[in-house]
Write a protein that binds this DNA or RNA. Structure first.
Length: 194
DNA sequence: TGCCTGATTGCCT
DNA sequence: GGCAATCAGGCAA
C-alpha cells in the first residue's frame, strides 16, 4: 500500500485558513524503521499575530520559533506539561501561521500504534491532537523537521479525495471561538469529537 | 522570583 | 461529569 508523494513546499506557502481544508484526506507519514501513518480527518487553522488563540499572537519566542520559520515544516509543542501537539507551518516565513493536526484515521502500522498508545480500539489510536503524536511517535525532537522530505516525517497525497468536508468553531480555546477555522471529514469515525 | 494558565487526556466517582 | 497530572511561557510584583 503506497503512501503517495510528499506535498511540495508551495502547498504550504498560503494562509493557514487556505491550507487547512486542503489537508483533509492527506496522509501524515512517519518513517522510523517501521512506517506508521494515518489519513488526516480533522484540522484547525491558527493565524499568527491577530489570532487571539494562536501561540504566535505575541510574536516569536523560543517555543514557537518554528511557527515563524519557513512553510512546510513541523511545529511541535508540549501542552499541559505532558502532551505533544503537532502543527504544519504555513504561509511565508515570519507570518506565524500553522495548522493543528487534530485527528487521523490509522492506515499504516496500526499494530505499532496500538503498542505506543497502549490501547486496542482502532478509533482511540489517533482521535485527538495528543493521541496522534503518541501513536506516530512524534515528540519535541521533531520540532522544525521538514515535511516535504520523504524520509522521517512527511505529509503525502495518495490521490484519495475526502467525501464530506465540514467546518466548525475551533475546540479547546477560550477566545476566537467565533471563527469557523476547524475542518473535518464528517463521514469519519476517527474524529476527536468533544 | 513566583504565580497562573494552557490548541489535552484518561481515570475516578 | 469532575478533576488530577505536570511544566514552560508569559506576566505581575
Amino acid at each position: 500500500m503506497s503512501a503517495g508523494v510528499p506535498l511540495p513546499r508551495a502547498f504550504y506557502e498560503r494562509p493557514a485558513t487556505d491550507v487547512a481544508p486542503d489537508l483533509i484526506g492527506k496522509l501524515l507519514v512517519h518513517e522510523s524503521g517501521t512506517r506508521t501513518a494515518g489519513r488526516i480527518v480533522e484540522v484547525e487553522a491558527y493565524c499568527g499575530v491577530g489570532d487571539p488563540a494562536a501561540h504566535s499572537r505575541r510574536g516569536p519566542t523560543a517555543r514557537n520559533a518554528s511557527m515563524f520559520g519557513p512553510p512546510g515544516h513541523l511545529y511541535v509543542y508540549l501542552i499541559y506539561g505532558l502532551h505533544w501537539c503537532a502543527n504544519a507551518v504555513c504561509a511565508p516565513a515570519g507570518v506565524g501561521d500553522a495548522v493543528l493536526l487534530r485527528a487521523l484515521e490509522p492506515t499504516h502500522g496500526v499494530r505499532h500504534m496500538a503498542v505506543r498508545r497502549r490501547v486496542a480500539d482502532c478509533r482511540s489510536l489517533c482521535s485527538g491532537p495528543a493521541k496522534l503524536t503518541q501513536a506516530l511517535g512524534i515528540g519535541g525532537e521533531h520540532d522544525g523537521c521538514d515535511l516535504t522530505s520523504p524520509s522521517g516525517l512527511s505529509i503525502c497525497d495518495d490521490g484519495v479525495v475526502p467525501s464530506d468536508v465540514a467546518r466548525s468553531a475551533r475546540i479547546g480555546i477560550s477566545s476566537g471561538t467565533d471563527l469557523l477555522w476547524r475542518w473535518y471529514d464528517a463521514s469519519s469515525a476517527h474524529l476527536s469529537r468533544r
